[in-house]
Design a protein around this nucleic acid. Structure first.
Lengths: 149, 149
DNA sequence: AATGAAATATACTCCCT
DNA sequence: AGGGAGTATATTTCATT
């Protein structure tokens, strides 16, 4: 499906504030509220829009540390790890990747003791490398229309 | 501020569907719609809720590749890079981190030619390492209340 | 595919507890 | 801090173009 100019505008608005009403979106893009509702529903049905998520402050929830942890799985330990990782509440995102490491994870942790405990859970699955996040340079940047394509 | 049990429920609902109405949230947690609105507004004002974002499908928008790229900045090149990276549309997230590399980025790209162009832009700032994302094991996992804390 | 209109649902403001 | 009432606004459905 081709995303037309109006849908790109709608997606831009929903990326900046997903709780914006259809009526308000309509005022921004020059459509009536039912027209906006229909376009959004279609993009949801087509899987262009996967969902709407509140973005929370980790510190307020008691997570003072964020870390990026890579894992180079031991022989035969990748599948067990994949089953385990979905149960770990600390893991925000986890990707299988190419390269020397198989796995990269973004995790939140209460403090350094929590980090230590967390890493200890991983040692049976493979060799880990931990990078503490110092600051966010870019965070959840909205996706824009490519110039070409 | 302490997040009470009802606010944790509200945050859980908003993480799974940020476009849920206050009335529907109220039905789930046993509060009236104005009470829900007041609680949400307070959490927004306190910075517990940072925003509401539509989650989009990268493939549908013409981005077929996702990659994790680390950068080990050359002497004096970190600051210029930090100014540059905020202008790069391909970068979804970028963190300063501890360890051998200074920077880690999550980027989306149309294809391998686009990846090549993108990496070429970075070589003046430092040494890069690229990992192609093969699959998502965990994606945007909601933050839950810690057992302790 | 969008509009306009009617019915329903929701949100907002204010006052009360 | 939350409930309830009243008003304004939004959503949904449907007929029409």
């Amino acid at each position: 499906m081709k995303i037309d100019s109006i849908n790109w505008q709608i997606l831009g608005l929903l990326q900046s504030n997903a709780r914006m009403t259809n009526a308000e979106i309509g005022r921004n893009v020059g459509l009536s509220s039912p027209a906006v509702a229909e376009r959004i529903k279609k993009m949801e049905d087509l899987g262009i829009i996967n969902g709407y998520r509140a973005e929370l402050d980790f510190g307020s929830m008691g997570y003072q540390l964020k870390a990026i942890i890579t894992l180079r799985a031991f022989m035969g330990k990748l599948k067990p790890f994949l089953q385990k990782v979905v149960q770990l509440d600390e893991v925000l995102n986890c990707y299988r990747i190419t390269g020397n490491e198989n796995i990269i994870m973004e995790v939140v942790l209460a403090d350094q003791y929590h980090l230590e405990e967390f890493i200890d859970q991983l040692i049976t699955y493979g060799e880990t490398r931990t990078h503490i996040v110092l600051s966010n340079v870019v965070e959840n940047s909205p996706i824009r229309r490519k110039i070409k394509g």
